[in-house]
Design a binder for these strands. Structure first.
Lengths: 116, 116
DNA sequence: TCGATGTATCGAAGATTGTCAATCTATACT
DNA sequence: AGTATAGATTGACAATCTTCGATACATCGA
């Protein structure tokens, strides 16, 4: 099954537990990009900053200075997180309010935690 | 704190929860490589195959054929997983028996799951 | 309407990564 | 000793990724 998420497709297979028999290549190909989205210091900090932000949201512009990165770079990382379904952006006026999709984060985490 | 793991250093900061206030750059730099080790379809399958293997172990040679990859490639991926502390290898005769370090896997998973 | 601001996109430079052939080391068998 | 096998390492190459300046688009305020 495939769902639409901000114009980009993300399959449900992203979070298959690793423990119930060996996963096939298809599932591995679905999980890897989501983990890859988190496998970057900058993006980990972005997720963390969004979770720690008041209301759980922040606009992109407020991330640039604490990260010490240029605006296009931050925008790029937010796009990667969006495409992985880990973050959503809601446009309000000039700003885009970004927030973490906690279910998505939990799903991946749970897939890694031993089920037995 | 730093611990030795098969001649390679892996810090304890790898699994800081993302939810207790924003993590600093140092912690993000420690977590990212561990997630990066899992952010590859081949390595996900290796971890999964090791978990599913009888006794929870397998030698490198038994992974090559099901993965459809050359021996140096499998060896490379096992090295990445070892350096991330996700896998351990025990040499027995000609073979090295590889095993997943489940605590390590659980730690990273737990760091991603919402704590509140 | 015009200038300022928040975002996204494009293009390029530099670094990193995945893959494999070739090679080397270590162990086991004869 | 000689051969075969498991694994690691090296070197090379293509593909991908991170970063940023330049630019374009959209929205707000004057």
């Amino acid at each position: 099954m495939v769902m639409k998420l901000l114009e980009l497709e993300v399959t449900d297979y992203c979070c298959t537990p690793l423990h119930d028999g060996a996963i096939d290549e298809e599932k591995a190909l679905a999980m890897a990009p989501v983990l890859g989205a988190l496998a970057d210091p900058v993006r980990l900090r972005i997720v963390s900053m969004l979770l720690a932000a008041p209301e759980g949201t922040s606009c992109g512009c407020d991330l640039e200075e604490p990260l010490g990165l240029a605006q296009p770079t931050v925008s790029h990382h937010l796009k990667v997180l969006r495409e992985a379904g880990l973050v959503e952006g809601e446009k309000r006026g000039r700003w885009v309010h970004y927030r973490v999709v906690p279910e998505r984060l939990s799903e991946i985490g749970a897939a890694l935690v031993a089920s037995s």
